[in-house]
Design a protein around this nucleic acid. Structure first.
Lengths: 213, 213
DNA sequence: ACCTGAACACCGTTCAAGT
DNA sequence: ACCTGAACACCGTTCAAGT
C-alpha cells in the first residue's frame, strides 16, 4: 500500500463518495480505510473543507481545458461544456462536492473559469454578463449531467422503482404530465440525449443572446 | 409564543438557515430556539430529511404557479422562471435546501414540475427532452438567483473582500480575465441583470431549440 | 396525542505528545 | 516532518417513559 499523501487521501475520498455517497466521506472513515489515525489526515488537510477542495481539485484536474485556439468561440465553448458534463458524469459525487465548496478556492477550477470568461468575452458579452454566464454554464452542465440515465435491467434500481411508483400513484387528474412521464423522470433517460440535446440546450441560450448584440 | 407545530418548526428552520447558513439548521438548535426538547421535533418530522423537505415545501409554497391560461407557452414559462428566481433570491438558504433533497418528495414542488412539463410539452418537446428541460430550468434558475449581487457599502462584505483580494492576487499573465473581473465576480453584480439578462439566458435556450422542430 | 430523559453511535477538531 | 492518544463539543436518533 502506498504512502499517506494528500493526493492519496483525495482519491480514496472520491472513491468512497462515488460508490457510497458523499455522506460516507468522513475524516474518520477515510482514516480507517487508509489504515491510519483520524488526526493523521489533519497533517495533509487543515480541515474537512480543505479536503473537499482537494477532491474538487482532483476532479477538475481530470479535464484540462485546451489552450485557446483559432476556432470560433462556439466550438471551443462546446468542447468545454462537453468536457465538464463528461467529468461530472464519470464521478457521481462530483455534483455534491462542487455544491459544498466555493469554486474560487479550487486551483484547477480557476483555469476552467478563466477559459469560460475568455470565451464569453469573445462572444461579445460585457463583464457582468460574462460572470452570470459562467455560473450558468456550470449549473446547467450539472443539470444535464445529473439527469437520471437508463439503467441495465439487473442494476440496483430498487430506489428508482420506489420513486417511480410514488409518482405514478399521484392523482392523475391533477398531475397528468408527471404521471405520464414518471418513467424517464426517475431513471429511464436515453444517455445519448446528454451529448446532443443537453449540450445544445446549454449552448443555444448563450448563442442566441450573443447574436443579439 | 405559538404552539409547536410542523409549520412553526419549518419556519424557524428557514429563518435560521437564511440568516446563519444551512449548517446552523440543526435539530438540537431548533429545539432550544423553540423552547423544547430535541426529541419533541421527532413527533412532527420523522427525521431530519423530512424536516428539510418541510422547509422546501414551505419555500416553494410561497409561489404557487398560476393555473394554465391562454397565453403562449413562452410567456407562461417566463412567469415560472421569474417566480422561481424571485423565491430563490428571497431565501438565501433555498439553494442549499433544494440541493439536499429530492424535489420529487416535496409536495408543493410537484405542482411547479407539472406546470413545467406541461409547458415543455406545448413547446413541442418529447417526453425525455421535457424531463431534461425541467431539470435545466431549476438548475439554471439557481445559477441566476445565486449570482452575487452588489452590496451596500456598509454591508457585511468582509468575506467578499477577502475573496476579491484572493482573485486579484492571481498571476495576471495566466488569468487575465479572472483578475479583471474579480469585482463583479464575487459580489459586485448589478441586481437588474437577473430580471433581464438572466431570465433571457435561461429562456432563449429553450426557445431556440423549440424553434427547430 | 404530544413531549421528556437518558443513552448510543457517530461526527469534526484541538492539543500535547511521541518518533 | 509526520503521526498517535486522549479529550471536547457537537451531531442525529432510538427507546422507554411520562402526561
Amino acid at each position: 500500500m502506498g504512502k499517506l499523501t494528500a493526493q492519496a487521501i483525495a482519491e480514496r475520498a472520491l472513491e468512497v463518495g462515488d460508490t457510497e455517497g458523499i455522506d460516507a466521506v468522513t475524516i474518520r472513515r477515510l482514516a480507517t480505510d487508509l489504515g491510519v489515525t483520524p488526526m493523521a489526515l489533519y497533517w495533509h488537510y487543515k480541515n474537512k473543507e480543505q479536503l473537499l477542495i482537494g477532491m474538487a481539485d482532483h476532479l477538475i484536474g481530470g479535464f484540462a481545458p485546451k489552450p485557446a485556439d483559432e476556432r470560433p468561440w462556439q466550438e471551443q465553448l462546446r468542447d468545454l461544456v462537453e468536457g465538464l458534463i463528461r467529468t461530472l458524469r464519470t464521478h457521481p459525487c462530483a455534483k455534491n462536492v462542487i455544491e459544498q465548496i466555493d469554486p474560487v478556492t479550487v486551483p484547477n477550477f480557476l483555469a476552467v473559469w478563466e477559459q469560460a470568461l475568455r470565451l464569453a468575452s469573445s462572444a461579445g458579452f460585457g463583464v457582468e454578463e460574462s460572470c452570470l454566464i459562467t455560473k450558468y454554464i456550470l449549473q446547467s452542465s450539472i443539470a444535464i449531467a445529473d439527469a437520471p440515465v437508463h439503467m441495465e435491467a439487473g442494476d440496483r434500481d430498487e430506489m428508482v422503482r420506489v420513486k417511480r411508483l410514488g409518482l405514478q400513484s399521484l392523482p392523475v387528474e391533477k398531475y397528468p404530465y408527471l404521471v405520464e412521464m414518471a418513467c424517464p423522470m426517475v431513471g429511464g433517460l436515453d444517455p445519448g440525449l446528454y451529448d446532443t440535446f443537453g449540450v445544445d440546450l446549454v449552448l443555444s441560450g448563450i448563442e442566441a443572446l450573443a447574436a443579439r448584440r
